[in-house]
Design a protein around this nucleic acid. Structure first.
Length: 305
DNA sequence: AACCAGCACAACCGCCTTGTA
DNA sequence: TTACAAGGCGGTTGTGCTGGT
């Protein structure tokens, strides 16, 4: 027997919201805020709706800062970049796109961007895949010789090598806040010497990404918030560093994103909030070392902050 | 004009995580 | 430590619109 439903579905209204309901919810939130309790909100607001439904409606549609449609090339690249590195974690991806919601980004990917990405030419240098490809889970992403998306990417388009399901990361501590080792595009860029076997620090397509040694000293959290002048460190703009890294990962892991990303990375001009755009190191660790059942070394993070 | 297929997007479902008593 | 409630998330479904036949 499953858990009890959050509301009586037989009694609450379902389906599309009417303009009157929208205005009722909008007015209530304007006047009182959400109050930290979505379950109680519909009753207080006089809405015959499930609390979860109210929450979704507000977050995905009624919030004043929401933008719908009109995705830019930069946003496309960011979505592809992050999808290549972290998979379908839409809330994280959306958090990097001001005014976008996870649902919106997810729909956009499923209906448009996925097809667009599928039509992109494949990578030019498949020897990249020798790096992480030796690790567990990477087999699903071995690029075909022709290098087309349809051959490189599994049917689900899920980067299994990084996904919780494949890495078994339910046992991996992805929520640690202390010692997060964010490979922030800002903060410490280029990365310390001992990380450069793993981190792509230049735009050379020949760069081979190798698994990071696990016994490396971890220098603590790399976050722009703690580093003065972090938006442009080492002569590399934040977005350039970000996209350079992720294009390298896309090429390594999916065999197709690289082509989508590399062309215009230098011209990317959108401002990306937050600091840590690097792939989840804990999951990479788990996937690459078949240690899904164990915790990664302290300091591997899952935080995009 | 009617029908159908495909598309876009809003909304729902169920599971997982988190906070709290 | 445990149990429970609520929040959060990603996958999936439903619905309306549009273009083609």
């Amino acid at each position: 027997m499953g858990r009890a439903p959050c509301c009586d579905k037989a009694r609450v209204k379902r389906g599309p919201w009417s303009p009157e309901e929208d205005e009722q919810l909008r007015g209530y939130v304007r006047a009182h805020g959400v109050g930290g309790n979505w379950i109680a909100l519909p009753h207080k607001a006089g809405l015959n709706r499930c609390g979860k439904s109210c929450r979704l409606r507000w977050l995905n549609y009624l919030r004043p800062d929401i933008r719908h449609g009109g995705y830019t090339e930069q946003e496309d690249r960011v979505i592809c970049s992050l999808y290549a590195s972290i998979g379908s974690r839409w809330s994280i991806i959306a958090s990097k796109l001001p005014g976008r919601t996870d649902n919106d980004v997810k729909n956009y990917w499923n209906t448009k961007l996925k097809k667009k990405a599928m039509t992109m030419p494949g990578p030019q240098n498949h020897h990249h895949h020798a790096g992480l490809g030796a690790g567990a889970g990477a087999g699903a992403f071995s690029a075909g010789p022709a290098g087309s998306w349809s051959q490189c990417v599994p049917s689900s388009l899920q980067p299994a090598a990084l996904s919780p399901a494949a890495s078994g990361s339910s046992s991996v501590d992805t929520s640690s806040s202390g010692g997060d080792m964010c490979f922030a595009a800002a903060g410490m860029y280029p990365p310390p010497h001992h990380m450069q076997g793993f981190v792509h620090v230049d735009s050379s397509p020949q760069t081979v990404l190798a698994p990071m040694p696990l016994d490396v000293p971890v220098a603590g959290t790399w976050a722009s918030s703690s580093v003065p002048g972090a938006s442009n460190v080492g002569g590399m703009a934040l977005e350039d560093a970000f996209l350079t890294d992720l294009s390298a990962y896309g090429d390594l892991l999916l065999g197709g994103f690289g082509g989508l990303l590399q062309d215009n990375k230098a011209t990317a001009a959108m401002e990306l909030p937050g600091a840590c755009y690097f792939p989840n190191m804990a999951e990479l660790w788990a996937a690459d070392h078949a240690h899904a059942h164990a915790k990664p070394p302290q300091g591997l993070c899952n935080t995009f902050t």
